[in-house]
């Protein structure tokens, strides 16, 4: 039974996209295209989730999410809200 093919969602922050065409040109599967100066997923079904578009985008305007996968909320030191004194957590 062939492995069930993953599908991906293309989140585009249109206000940040400057239509530079980098993501479109270097997408290995020609998934993306420009429409009046903004990127969109012309063939989302071809996407293999390599994220090269997201990684190379100079404007952080495109993001790839694998459908059906809930990303765990990452907890690191930066999430600590320093305005809450540590003792408050003890109460």
């Amino acid at each position: 039974m062939s492995e069930q093919k993953k599908s991906f969602e293309h989140i585009v922050r249109e206000r940040w996209c400057k239509g530079c065409n980098i993501c479109v040109a270097f997408c290995p599967k020609q998934v993306l295209a420009l429409r009046n100066g903004k990127v969109y997923a012309a063939h989302p079904e071809l996407c293999i989730g390599c994220r090269l578009c997201e990684i190379r985008c100079p404007d952080f305007a495109i993001e790839i999410h694998e459908k059906g996968v809930q990303k765990p909320e990452s907890q690191d030191a930066s999430d600590v809200d320093h305005t809450i004194p540590p003792e408050a957590k003890h109460a």
């Binding site: 530079c20 990684i55 100079p58």
Partner: peptide
């Protein structure tokens, strides 16, 4: 954001790489 760099300027990509490296190392923003 959006930042001031010209369309297609590589500086955004470099900044993105730095930020992803920081995120990966889970460095404390503070």
């Amino acid at each position: 954001l959006p930042h001031i760099w010209c369309p297609g300027c590589g500086h955004g990509t470099v900044t993105g790489a730095l930020v992803r490296a920081i995120a990966k190392l889970k460095l404390d923003k503070n």
